[in-house]
Design a protein around this nucleic acid. Structure first.
Length: 298
DNA sequence: CGACTTTGACCGGCGC
DNA sequence: GCGCCGGTCAAAGTCG
């Protein structure tokens, strides 16, 4: 469903309205298009204001990214101090498994590996390793097996499997030499336009884009401006990454379905979006700030 | 020249 | 034990 809001002038839309539109959007989980009749000058002015606000929010987001990295660092430190809880990596294939699935998926569509074919064939392994799957719709004509998730992958093999005529590509995480994460990418048997990425293991390093954030990059700027689509073959609706989409995030809090994006640390985005939009203090502060700014501007 | 991809060979698990 | 099959290795090729 698409909700169209039409008003005579852009000036009729305050930041407070926009904020509430975002909240509504987060509730109805659909796109809202605001279509004001306006002059180019008004639009430019509005764009300027929105940009300023966006910048402000980005700064807040960056700060949260830093906090997240600090927490993650602490977690890694803790994991190092508790080696028996860590996954041992013996030399060959199956021993590279570990305990946690990587935090990746698709809104409402990710599934645990405990029900897929791997679990049937390797039940013992699944006790140790949760496998995450990500479904990504691509151009039907696009034959590449590349799923952009922000991480750096090195392809180390490709096979044609019996149950699927499409080749399966094998990737290792090459961002950190010691990172045990692997992924397999194969086109869906049912829908050739859908790439199925199977992730095994957990990254033992921060997301590359998070690292860029901490080093001053402004990747978070892309949060609202670069939505990404990822969908299941069995559920055509497209999931759009949007920091305002708090409901889907909160709903998926435990099952952790995430949206995949080539640019943004999805998990971080989802967590921050949840934290931000669920925090009444933050909402009140944001509304107050926006309202105050509007009053000041007007 | 280094990093990455391709691709055939090889390995090991599993079913018969 | 044998063969099938998924997964991995590693040499050769490609690219920037």
């Amino acid at each position: 469903m698409v909700l169209l809001l039409v008003c005579p002038s852009i000036m009729d839309i305050s930041y407070k309205h926009l904020f509430f539109f975002s909240l509504i959007k987060s509730c109805i989980n659909d796109d809202i298009y605001v279509l004001p009749f306006q002059s180019a000058g008004a639009l430019a002015e509005e764009l300027k204001r929105v940009s300023a606000e966006n910048k402000k929010l980005t700064e807040m987001l960056t700060e949260m990214c830093e906090n997240y990295n600090t927490l993650r660092g602490n977690l890694m430190e803790y994991m190092r101090k508790n080696p028996d809880k860590e996954h041992s990596s013996s030399k060959k294939r199956k021993s590279e498994s570990n305990n946690n699935s990587i935090p990746m998926g698709v809104n409402g569509t990710s599934e645990s590996s405990s029900t897929d074919e791997e679990s049937c064939k390797k039940p013992k392994e699944d006790i140790k390793t949760k496998i995450s799957r990500v479904y990504m719709r691509t151009e039907a004509s696009d034959k590449s097996l590349i799923v952009k998730d922000g991480y750096q992958w090195r392809k180390y093999g490709q096979k044609v499997t019996r149950d699927n005529p499409s080749p399966r590509a094998y990737f290792k995480c090459s961002f950190a030499p010691s990172c045990p994460v692997k992924k397999k990418v194969q086109r869906s048997v049912d829908d050739q336009s859908v790439l199925v990425a199977t992730y095994e293991g957990e990254h033992n390093h921060p997301h590359p884009s998070q690292m860029e954030v901490t080093t001053g990059s402004n990747r978070c700027m892309t949060l609202g401006s670069v939505p990404c689509s990822a969908s299941l073959s069995s559920s055509p609706p497209t999931a759009t990454l949007d920091w305002t989409k708090s409901k889907s995030s909160s709903e998926s809090k435990n099952t952790s379905p995430k949206t995949e994006s080539p640019e943004v640390p999805q998990v971080l985005v989802e967590q921050m979006a949840t934290s931000l939009t669920k925090d009444p203090n933050f909402r009140a502060a944001l509304v107050a700030a926006i309202s105050g700014k509007m009053l000041h501007n007007n």
